Simulated scan of single mutants.
Amino acid sequence: MFRDEKGFRPTQQIFTEVPPKYDILNRILTLNLDEGWRRKASATILEENPSRVLDLCCGTADLTMHLARSAKQSAELYGLDFSHTMLARAKEKVALFGEDRVKLIQGDAGNMPFEDEFFDAVGISFGFRNLTFENPDARLHISEVFRVLKPGGRFVVLETSQPNNRLIRAGYHFYQKYITAPIGGLLSGNRPAYDYLAHSAINYYSIPEISEVLLEAGFSKVSGQPYLLGATAIVTAIK
């Protein structure tokens, strides 16, 4: 497992000690494409007009904001994240919709504070990799999502993936190693975290592999849609 000199996954530090430029870094490093992908993920999450929705690992509420804009007014929206500093920023954003529109909760993805079959839909944007890549609790995290979803509910994952074309895949890996890691590290002041993010993106699952992981966890009707020539994907799984 990729760890820093203290033995911790470096993303634990970056997601707790949120850099001032965190959101703008996401825009820069994805060439401002990430918001478009979140809009598509939000539309997929809300396709069946769910009454209760969770943004898992919501961070600073980028996906949550899209959900709040598009969900029916009666829908109950939740955001869960372990980082209190991330949630502080999230609260500033969702305040635009009123204090009661989104319930933001600090909690552990491996032990979510929700009853069984509580949600009609769960979404996660660029957090699934951190829950599953070289993570000994990967199965626990996925089983928790399965537990809190109602039968027929959908789990929508927006995450990095692997292009099928070898030349494109090589270019994508080059970008992660020589652009994402150094620029992200320089602007954030936390190079180990962005080294980890690049390393995990380079070595993470393809769409078929993500699908297989979800099928093994008990989900059905898993489908994936590639974006940016396969470097990013939206995978949808039904309980």
Rank of each mutant, 00 (worst) to 15 (best):
Y172C: 04
K221P: 04
L31R: 03
G189S: 12
Y205C: 05
K6E: 13
L167V: 15
P113M: 11
L46P: 01
I105C: 03
S74V: 11
E212D: 11
F155G: 00
R147S: 02
N32W: 15
D116H: 15
I105Y: 01
P151S: 02
M112L: 11
K6R: 15
A217V: 04
R89P: 03
Q13A: 12
S161L: 01
R52A: 13
F97L: 12
K72R: 11
K177T: 13
L228W: 11
I238S: 06
A198C: 10
Y22R: 08
L87Y: 03
A233L: 09
F15H: 04
I124M: 01
E212G: 04
G107N: 03
L186A: 14
Q13M: 14
Q13H: 12
G185Q: 11
R27M: 10
L67P: 03
F2H: 03
P208H: 05
D62G: 04
L63C: 00
M1V: 08
T16K: 12
L56Q: 05
I179E: 09
G224F: 02
F155L: 08
N130A: 07
K221N: 15
Y205V: 01
T11D: 01
L96R: 13
F128L: 15
F2C: 03
F219D: 05
K91H: 09
G79T: 09
Y205Q: 11
V222K: 01
L33M: 14
D81T: 07
G184I: 04
H173N: 14
V94C: 09
N165H: 09
S161G: 06
D62I: 13
K239C: 02
T132D: 01
F118C: 10
D4Y: 09
R154T: 12
C57N: 12
R3P: 00
R169H: 13
T11V: 11
T85H: 07
N111P: 00
L187K: 06
L46D: 04
P208T: 04
I45N: 04
L229Q: 15
I45E: 02
A170K: 12
I207G: 04
V213Q: 13
M1H: 06
D4N: 15
I238E: 15
G98V: 14
G153W: 00
L33F: 07
S125K: 01
L67F: 10
T16W: 09
V157R: 06
Y194G: 07
T11L: 13
L158M: 10
P10Q: 03
